[in-house]
């Protein structure tokens, strides 16, 4: 079986810190994707506006952003199916414009839009897809069955894909992305439109892949998903990267430790202004980001007659909303 389920969580961190010492991040062998000033225009529309990032071997790297931020466009450029307008892009040290087939041979892609082959069964989808990678039939057969088991679809082996639920389809697509044992997995909204159970199952599989040292690039607009899975992430908006970092660091840096939420009222607002405490109003609530909720709570209780108040840890969602604003996107 290809997937050794190893208790690798700690080990992986250990390996990483070692390689980082040796190679200090700049060795091309260790850099899977390198992008500089990467740009993509569709006619007059600038979809990706000169972004730079690099993804290292073994890392789970996330792209967060509202709809239309340019995430899918970026994934397609990495996946060597959409040519960039300008800038530098290297995948495995190769240029997607020059060696697309060589790059794609080592990629696994889960597209945003489900595109399983409706003319085949679950097994047929994996087996046929293996053919596109020139995998010999016998190997492909064995591996397809292993992968069906990996995504827990072995019971649906001979079922037409049209008959699968949304969550099963997503899992099958994940399995399909693994037929060629890829060195880099690109996942565009892997859990889009799934119910919580299905999402958790996908997360679990991704965690397993991550633990085996796979390099994964994913996009999502579920912030809990990003916080859970990503070693590092960027937040994109309107084609640009706003921030980059580890999820916990980003929360600490851009919001703080905690959020105090109070019901909005004239007294509270003027009271906060009086105490020079910065706040943000969303609908009926006032949010105060802070490193010391106790202090803020004390001031509020003592001086502002708050009606309802709660304290919670700051999350990636707070960073996201702070940086990309609260207006609705399409």
């Amino acid at each position: 079986m290809q997937y050794r389920v190893l208790p690798l969580h700690n080990m992986r961190i250990f390996i990483h810190s070692r390689t980082n010492h040796w190679i200090s991040g700049s060795n091309p062998v260790n850099v899977i994707i390198e992008a500089q000033n990467l740009r993509k225009n569709f006619g007059d529309l600038v979809a990706v506006d000169g972004i730079a990032f690099s993804v290292k071997k073994g890392e789970v790297f996330g792209f967060l952003g509202p709809n239309g931020a340019g995430k899918t466009t970026t994934m397609k450029m990495i996946a060597s199916v959409s040519p960039r307008t300008s800038g530098v892009l290297q995948v495995f040290g190769m240029d997607p414009d020059v060696q697309p087939a060589e790059i794609k041979q080592h990629l696994g892609v889960v597209p945003q839009e489900t595109n399983l082959d409706p003319d085949f069964t679950c097994f047929g989808n994996l087996f046929t897809y293996s053919g596109y990678f020139d995998i010999p039939a016998q190997t492909a057969q064995k591996r397809s069955d292993e992968l069906l088991e990996f995504v827990q679809l072995q019971e649906k082996r001979d079922v037409e894909v049209e008959k699968l639920s949304g969550g099963m389809k997503r899992r099958l697509i994940l399995a399909r992305a693994l037929v060629n044992n890829p060195d880099l997995l690109i996942l565009d909204e892997p859990t889009i439109g799934l119910d919580p159970q299905a999402r958790h199952l996908i997360w679990e599989k991704l965690k397993t892949l991550q633990a085996q040292g796979n390099t994964i690039v994913l996009t999502t607009h579920y912030l809990d998903e990003a916080a859970r899975l990503c070693d590092r992430l960027v937040i994109m908006d309107q084609g640009e990267i706003l921030v980059e970092g580890a999820p916990a660091d980003l929360v600490k840096l851009h919001v703080g430790e905690e959020i105090v939420e109070v019901e909005k009222s004239a007294e509270v607002l003027s009271c906060l202004a009086g105490h020079n405490i910065p706040y943000e109003v969303t609908g009926d609530t006032v949010q105060i980001a802070t490193d010391s909720s106790r202090e803020i709570a004390k001031i509020l209780l003592d001086c502002c007659q708050p009606k309802k108040m709660l304290t919670r840890p700051a999350t990636l969602e707070d960073v996201f909303l702070k940086l990309t604003g609260r207006t609705l996107r399409d």
Binding site: A79, V81, A101, E102, K104, Q105, L107, V109, P111, E113, N115, L116, D117, Y129, Y132, F133, D134, N180
Partner: peptide, 10 residues
């Protein structure tokens, strides 16, 4: 979307 799926391979 078969062509999209295919061009994601070599």
């Amino acid at each position: 979307k078969s062509f999209d799926a295919m061009i994601a391979t070599p």
